[in-house]
Design a protein around this nucleic acid. Structure first.
Lengths: 215, 215
DNA sequence: AATAATCTCAGTCAAAAGTCTGAGGAGGAC
DNA sequence: GTCCTCCTCAGACTTTTGACTGAGATTATT
């Protein structure tokens, strides 16, 4: 028994093309073709594919949303995203939605087949550009704009960390054994140095730059 | 001219093995072998390889540290990690250090060759297990405690997003064309539903769970 | 010894945030 | 129609936050 694949794409040519070269593979069996995410939900329910090969840009229900819902209702089904160059913005959301693979449409046929085979085994396989984005997402922001934080004194960093834990001034004063007045002074200095207007913005800044363990 | 590769590993057998099957490739040229990170630094300086194929566990200077320093002094040199470990304690630091590829030592020869060729072109290529870790690192916390957010209405989610942008109630009221009173009502409901006490905690919650693009 | 930075605290205020109660209108569900 | 949810807004009120000024104590620097 081969790997049961459901094709999801709103362009007929793409569907035809995929069917054409996927059906030459002995271990792959195309069990259906649908043209949007909503139809994909139904098809998965009825036909129980192993793999859903899905486009991102589609009418009615896009690939990210469809992936998200699919993984909720049928976590065992593996989703492989097959997208075009243009929507790189959707790589991260798609992966977060639970996609097992990510390839671009200019992919070599045998690479796509390989991606499907790996996905069927639960292995992740991404296009280098997708991996690239994933890695830069990981490593960016971390060492980036940490310039302003260097202005903070030791104590101010401690207070900022408390802020990122969601504590109020009173709570901070308790935990650091200082008065609330002093906390306020520190907070004011922090806001000024980080060039933000309130503690929420300070917390956001700290988290985006991953200044502490918690973020 | 082939791809110039420097081998870095403290085990002689590994070096011999790598040289053996990499030298059968016409487009790959082994220009040196060293046995620790420190020696690698010198060798890179002198021999200007395109690729450094590096072990992680080494005496004197380990692979992560060596990668970090290499990318600082010679960012154009691509580092491919060849490790026997696929756990996150090794993979994540190595990638953050700037590795372009990551493969396990049980890799098929032709996959390793492929990894080197892709790395030479600047493309990232990781072992599926490494990709897996990278993704789970990204998506952890994400799909987790998103239960509470489902209680939020459409409008409340919009307001929460504004909060994660660091806006005040007044700014939100301007941008959403509603009164500040209404914003306050929404905020109160948001805090109650998310079971937090103030907007800062709400922002932290939203960012940790990556509820919006910005986070 | 003198300067500068840091940490601490206080008082005063204004502004912002958040709670609570109440309520009208719009739209969907039954 | 009726029920229910959502979005909207208001008034009254308390709490929290943050700005600004001023100042004593400690510590490191020069």
């Amino acid at each position: 028994m081969g790997i049961k694949v459901l094709l999801v794409d709103d362009h007929l040519v793409v569907l035809r093309g995929l069917r054409f070269f996927l059906s030459t593979q002995e271990d792959i069996e195309i069990i259906g073709e649908v043209e949007n995410g909503e139809a994909a939900m139904k098809a998965v329910e009825e036909q129980k594919p192993d793999i859903v090969l899905m486009d991102l840009m589609m009418p009615v229900m896009d690939g990210v949303e469809a992936t998200k819902r699919l993984k909720e209702s049928h976590p065992e089904v593996k989703v492989v995203i097959l997208s075009s160059f243009s929507d790189q913005d959707h790589v991260i959301p798609a992966l977060q939605a639970g996609a097992t693979g990510y390839q671009l449409k200019d992919v070599e046929p045998d690479v796509l087949v390989e991606t499907i085979r790996k996905a069927a085994k639960g292995e992740k396989y991404l296009h280098p550009k997708a991996t690239d984005l994933l890695m830069s997402e990981m490593t960016s922001d971390v060492s980036k704009e940490t310039a302003l934080i260097h202005d903070l004194t030791k104590r101010e960093k401690e207070v900022l960390e408390q802020i990122t834990l969601g504590k109020s001034n009173k709570e901070i004063s308790n935990d650091l054994y200082i008065t609330e007045k002093t906390v306020k002074t520190h907070v004011s200095h922090i806001l000024s140095k980080l060039e933000v207007h309130d503690r929420t913005q300070a917390a956001i800044y700290a988290m985006k730059n991953r200044l502490f363990e918690s973020s």
